[in-house]
């Protein structure tokens, strides 16, 4: 089967980030493959290693995001498509899913995988939007994936348990990072990735975004708490006393 994984380049959220005048200020070089997308790439590779098939990736982003496509190719994907937009392009989940839907109308894939969300916006909308635009059955928040002939069996983490869902192909699945540990590309993989094809296509018409970020704000800070002193039995007695009196939560 042909797997196509939608990937995104995101800021490394573990890097130092500040807010300046309502904008995020960070080292522009600290960017990574979205961790959830890395799990999606890994899962596609594992399934094609078991059952045959091929893995491609598609990314929407500025020129510099090519390195994130190379990362996925180094992991083992065969080919990448880069829909190139300007650094400051205004995209929301709806416009991203529209551009991807246009791409898949021509490209086709048996299985489309995405991360369940991007770790910068944590919106988690794009996958279901894309599936709906393409009229595909889909499952979100997958923590396990298996292939049975032309059917994908998804283990989805739901609210009250894990849902075992059978999806006929073509279909779309959004992947949790709880699914697997993405492989670290080998040196051979990294070298080989340089020779793999990346189809770069400039995006001419970006669909208008209806959701905009106005500014970034610091989180409300919690009052600094206190560490209780004394021997363990004194600490236990004091915390229960405080929970009863000061906090009145018991």
């Amino acid at each position: 089967m042909k797997f196509c994984v939608c990937i995104k380049q995101v800021p490394d959220v573990t890097a130092p980030i500040q807010i300046r005048d309502g904008e995020l200020a960070m080292d522009a070089g600290r960017v990574v493959l979205n961790a959830y997308d890395a799990s999606a790439v890994e899962e596609a590779l594992v399934l094609t290693e078991q059952h045959g098939g091929e893995v491609e990736v598609i990314l929407i982003g500025p020129d510099r995001a090519t390195e994130t496509i190379r990362k996925a190719l180094a992991m083992g994907a065969a080919k990448g498509t880069h829909l190139v937009v300007a650094e400051d392009a205004e995209l929301d989940s709806a416009s991203v899913s529209k551009l991807l839907a246009d791409f898949f109308q021509d490209a086709g894939a048996d299985v489309i995988l995405t991360g369940k969300q991007a770790q910068d916006t944590d919106a988690g909308l794009g996958g279901a939007m894309l599936a709906e635009r393409l009229g595909l059955p889909y499952a979100t928040n997958a923590v396990g994936l298996a292939q049975e002939g032309e059917t994908l069996v998804v283990t989805r983490q739901g609210d009250t348990g894990q849902e075992i869902i059978a999806l006929p192909t073509p279909c779309l699945v959004t992947c949790s990072n709880d699914m697997n540990d993405p492989r670290i590309p080998s040196l051979k993989g990294v070298m080989g990735a340089k020779r793999k094809p990346i189809d770069s296509r400039p995006v001419v018409d970006i669909p208008a975004a209806r959701v905009r970020t106005l500014r970034y704000e610091p989180l409300p800070t919690r009052e600094p708490g206190r560490v209780l002193e004394g021997e363990p039995h004194e600490q236990a007695a004091e915390v229960v006393h405080l929970l009863e009196t000061e906090a009145s939560v018991l």
Binding site: V13, D122, T213, E217, P218
Partner: peptide, 29 residues
Amino acid sequence: PDVASFDLADGGVEATRPVMASKFYARVR
């Protein structure tokens, strides 16, 4: 999606939502 607060404002909806692994709020419209 996944907002911490929201309000009706000038014909649209404005909200705050945690982003960047909940390091910051984004004010969105």
